[in-house]
Amino acid sequence: MSETFTFTIDGVEVEGEPGQTILEAAQAAGIYIPRLCHKDGLEPWGGCRVCTVTVNGRSASACTQPAAAGITVENETDELVDMRRGIIEMLFVEGNHFCMFCEKSGNCELQALAYRLGIAAPRYEYLWPTRDVDASHPDVLLDRNRCILCARCVRTSRDLDGKQVFGFVGRGPGKKIAVNASARLSETGLDVTDEAVDACPVGAILRKREGYRIPVGLRRYDGTPIGSDIEKGASS
């Protein structure tokens, strides 16, 4: 039995356990720290930077930073919330995200975060990149236009499916999601039942023939903002 300790998030005392990250400890305490590349059950990635908090005044990603006794964490300051908006907006302008006809609308974590943070339109100019769509697989569509490079599919395929279907090629703005084949997704061992297919927070990896199955109004984030489940967990 390891010793628990306490620290504060926005002035609220929170309990942590050794080995927990700030994000995990916050979540256990019913405090939602916005995140995109983090997914419960996967190794922390620290790439999207949406979960940036300050720890004793210094910036850190909550998904990678260990919780520690006595630290002072800021999560919902005006400055941090605006930086998170900025990062979400960067992701919107970096790709080609057409929410109005995307099958993931209503179930998309990027869109849901934009709503939660009150983003009406991005402040930055759109970059309109040219990106490939890979529709070769019989059951799964890979649309790089909507990819936010969070590596959730990469990690899920490698660590949970034991396959390594996905990876990254290129660097900087030219970085893109790649598949473990010389050309296309159909040449990989991806199966429609793989967990990697569901790991995508946006509409970059989609099951074919299932679009718009859930009526508007009943989709995951139609009723309550993203993160509500975590916040509700605390009050119960």
Binding site: E94, E125, G172, K175
Partner: peptide, 20 residues
Amino acid sequence: VDESCGYCTPCRVGNVLIKR
């Protein structure tokens, strides 16, 4: 912009926007 590894959002996208 050329030398960013592209791992994190602010560096990958932000530098392009600052340059512009």
